[in-house]
């Protein structure tokens, strides 16, 4: 393929993904509100459109028309840079997550992933580390005590859980012998899902993902009863919406990463043995990928509305004294499993 063809194909994929991403983000907000209402026997948003289905659009337009207040004590360049970093990170991590097998469209062999790079996992880790800056800058530059506390808490929490996250991923890398997400999905053929082969790594990764995305029970950075809004207390209008979007986008990316690394990605066990024809198989596989992500998003929301928040010392203790040794154990476990079965 020539460079021009690559650029055109990539742009089509990016357009598709940004649209899909914006829709899933706004609808996961809607579903969060509906599911939380359902869990607490309330009604939830049900006025705008049928059963409130247009609520996300109403919210976005409202925020778009609000005044963008910049507090006088803030560091203005960083105050603007912070939501930009948060959004930028959330929307560029998507590039390496494979959504389906290689398909042939109009005679082109197209991989259903924006960028099939051999260092995909490192790319994701690098960008999630960058995400810490968005939140820390937001907290530090706002010139408000609540924001500062939220930002400091967030940075300590996110870097603590990043260590165990890194070690958990090492187990997956060993199974696939590659850092490319495409190869990792391919290595989980049949029932060889990493969640089954390395349950410890799966659990540590899922818990770290909750902590990295600042979701309850790890939402200390924005604990409402103590910190008002945490790091985004002083943000309004679309800058606030940026953090909100980024938070939900990160939740979706975390779900997609859990699916890719541990739940077989787009694989449906033994579907190729059924002889359904190539197009149908591909469609089912892509559908399975999104169904798995949907189930995980539901799980994220379910946990948020069921489990109370940790205390800060408990949070740090779990991160360092439980998750870190467990994720080291996982590396040893995977090595032993590989040595026994190879």
């Amino acid at each position: 393929m020539s460079i021009l063809e690559i650029i055109i194909i990539t742009f089509v994929k990016i357009l598709f993904i940004i649209t899909a991403m914006l829709l899933t983000v706004s609808y996961s907000v809607y579903f969060e509100r509906r599911i939380s209402a359902w869990i607490q026997t309330r009604l939830g948003p049900n006025r705008v459109g049928w059963e409130g289905i247009l609520q996300p659009f109403a919210d976005v337009f409202k925020l778009l028309l609000k005044e963008d207040i910049v507090p006088e004590k803030s560091n203005k360049p960083l105050h603007t840079l912070a939501p930009f970093i948060a959004l930028f990170v959330a929307f560029s991590t998507y590039a390496v997550i494979p959504m389906g097998p290689e398909v042939t469209i109009f005679g082109y062999k197209v991989n259903l992933v924006v960028a099939d790079v051999n260092i995909g996992i490192l790319y994701v880790l690098a960008l999630t580390s960058l995400g810490v800056y968005g939140i820390t800058f937001a907290g530090w530059s706002s010139g408000s005590k609540y924001s500062l506390l939220g930002g400091v808490r967030a940075s300590a929490q996110m870097i603590s859980y990043e260590v165990s996250m890194g070690f958990s991923i090492a187990g997956v890398v060993m199974m696939a012998s590659s850092l490319s997400p495409v190869a990792i999905v391919n290595s989980q053929y049949g029932w060889m899902w990493n969640a089954i082969v390395q349950p410890i790594g799966f659990i540590t990764f899922v818990i770290s993902a909750f902590a990295e995305t600042n979701r309850l029970p790890f939402d200390l950075p924005e604990a409402e009863p103590e910190l008002v809004g945490g790091y985004h207390t002083e943000y309004s209008s679309m800058k606030f919406a940026s953090f909100f979007l980024a938070e939900y986008a990160n939740m979706i990316i975390a779900s997609a990463m859990i699916v890719t690394l541990y739940l077989g990605g787009w694989q449906v066990p033994y579907i190729d043995k059924l002889g359904l024809g190539e197009t149908l198989t591909t469609l089912i596989q892509v559908g399975a990928f999104f169904a798995k992500i949907g189930a995980l998003i539901f799980f994220f929301i379910w946990v948020r509305w069921s489990i109370p928040r940790f205390r800060y010392d408990q949070l740090m203790n779990i991160g360092w004294k439980v998750m870190f040794p467990l994720s080291l154990l996982n590396v040893v476990w995977v090595a032993v499993v590989l040595m026994i079965f190879n």
């Binding site: 460079i3 690559i6 650029i7 990539t10 742009f11 994929k13 990016i14 940004i18 939501p83 930009f84 970093i85 959004l87 930028f88 929307f91 560029s92 998507y94 590039a95 390496v96 924006v114 960028a115 099939d116 790079v117 051999n118 790319y123 940026s242």
Partner: peptide
């Protein structure tokens, strides 16, 4: 391999 990555980064920056 890396052209798509740069395109994604550029698009995400413009979007952000």
């Amino acid at each position: 391999q890396y052209i798509p990555i740069f395109l994604v980064i550029a698009t995400a920056a413009v979007f952000g």
